[in-house]
Simulated assay, not measured.
Amino acid sequence: MITRADYQLNRLQFLNNLVDLEKSEGLEIGACDLPTVSKEVGNCEFADFRSAEEMIRLWNLPPETVMPVKYILQRYSEVHTQINKKFDFVVLCHVIEHIPNVIGYIKDLHNLLKPGGVIIIACPDKRRTFDASRPSTTIEHLLDDYYNNCNYPSLEHILEFAKAASDDLRQKSIKSPKEFYEWGCKNFESGMADAHCHVWTDEEFFNQISYLIEAGMIEGLEIVDKQYNNIVYNEFLIALKSAR
């Protein structure tokens, strides 16, 4: 049976093929209690929208397992303007699907890299998750979100995600569309909404990132490695390297 530790090791091996961890400084966003690079393995700092104390309280986690969050990020500001440092690698595990503006976010993270640095993205393959029935994100959707500089999930994102992720909310959407809509509006207006804004298969995501790089929408990065979804896992991985 695959465990969380197996995911951790697979991600670490993928990163280790590209980066000399003994000589590198890294940043992981959203590690919570499952860091790709633990302090025993390498030098990595951690960033999140929540403090470690808040995550421990929200999810009743053992305090000793949660990573110390050095950088508490503000949702409406670019990450590179909040962290005055450059890194050899930046890791995102199951984060990119939550980001409303994927193109803008990758360009933002590029500004955190040293020359030759890499961004490692681990993303769930929708076929292996509750998102399986959702329509895949299109390139047009990504471009529209980039044009509008979306920095918060839309009501559509919230409602679509809720129906996929929660049996109770899916039933509510069928039995009482008005109540479901009102729930969605309240969640949206809270300012704290979180959703899988985007969903892909491995091939779809790889093709879209390749298209955006080749089209000059994401400049100065190249795909240097990718790992397709293996059915024993629910995710795929991609590595983007900075040329500058």
Rank of each mutant, 00 (worst) to 15 (best):
Lys163Glu: 09
Ile223Asp: 04
Ser77Gly: 08
Leu221Arg: 13
Glu204Ile: 09
Lys178Glu: 11
Pro124Arg: 02
Phe161Val: 05
Glu219Arg: 08
Met192Ser: 13
Ala164His: 09
Leu61Glu: 06
Glu189Trp: 09
Leu240Met: 04
Ile158Val: 05
His196Tyr: 11
Thr137Tyr: 10
Lys86Cys: 14
Asp131Glu: 15
Asn16Ala: 09
Tyr181Thr: 14
Gln13His: 12
Asn43His: 11
Asn43Asp: 12
Ile72Thr: 12
Lys172Glu: 14
Arg128Leu: 15
Lys107Ile: 12
Arg128Glu: 15
Ala195Glu: 10
Asn17Met: 00
Glu97Leu: 02
Met192Glu: 15
Ile231Lys: 11
Phe130Cys: 09
Ala164Gln: 10
Ile119Asp: 02
Leu73Met: 14
Cys185Ala: 11
Val69His: 02
Glu219Thr: 10
Val232Ala: 15
Met67Gly: 02
Tyr76Ile: 10
Val199Cys: 03
Phe87Ser: 05
Arg50Trp: 12
Ser38Thr: 08
Asp131Tyr: 05
Glu40Val: 07
Leu12Cys: 07
Leu27Met: 01
Gly42His: 07
Lys163Val: 03
Thr36Gln: 10
Cys197Ser: 12
Leu221Thr: 05
Ser133Gln: 06
Arg170Trp: 00
Asp6Gln: 07
Ser38Trp: 04
Leu240Cys: 07
Asp167Arg: 11
Val102Met: 15
Gln74Leu: 14
Tyr76Trp: 14
Lys114Trp: 00
Ile121Ser: 12
Ile99Met: 11
Asp194Lys: 01
Leu237Ile: 10
Met192Lys: 15
Trp200Gly: 02
Asp168Arg: 13
Lys70Glu: 00
Phe180Lys: 00
Leu142Met: 11
Gly191Pro: 10
